[in-house]
């Protein structure tokens, strides 16, 4: 049994220490907002925060997440009202929506470090997140909008 802090709650998971965090979250803890897309850190659908830093949970073993604070899309903001989430709805980013939890986690981490990112900052931070529906133009727009929303509430 391994203990894990996810979204400020303690969980115990019955999984091998080399199990990717992604599958612990999804299968052991029932937190299915974090998505499987490639299993090789190629698409970013599984992005979560480890102590605030974005990581690909599909290649992060459970053992590496122990003793650290894991944040998933379910725990990003208490009422799902993080500026990035609000901007995502405002700009109607999602099409199928499957990649969007990962996109949002990457965008939230970007804004935490760079409150008013340029297009180049966005490209650099978001190039690891694939979207097959092709919502990139709106992702870019929503990140700029989120920066404004966050600034407005500061």
């Amino acid at each position: 049994m391994a203990t894990l802090n996810v979204n400020q709650r303690e969980y115990t998971a019955n999984a091998r220490p080399d199990t990717p965090l992604l599958w612990v979250l999804r299968d052991s803890l029932g937190l299915t907002g974090t998505k499987y897309g490639c299993g090789m850190a190629l698409c970013g659908a599984c992005t979560v925060h480890l102590d605030g830093e974005p990581v690909r949970s599909c290649v992060t073993p459970l053992s590496a997440a122990q003793g650290r604070a894991v944040t998933t899309i379910e725990g990003l903001a208490p009422s799902s009202d993080h500026p990035v989430q609000r901007a995502w709805v405002q700009e109607e980013v999602a099409q199928c929506g499957y990649c969007q939890p990962g996109q949002i986690m990457s965008a939230a981490a970007l804004l935490a470090r760079t409150p008013t990112p340029s297009d180049a900052d966005i490209d650099a931070a978001m190039a690891g997140n694939l979207c097959r529906c092709g919502t990139y133009q709106r992702i870019r727009r929503a990140i700029h909008a989120a920066a404004k929303l966050a600034g407005g509430t500061r």
Partner: peptide
């Protein structure tokens, strides 16, 4: 259908 796609509940 879009709000549940931003909080992991979809």
């Amino acid at each position: 259908e879009n709000p549940p796609k931003v909080d992991g509940s979809a």
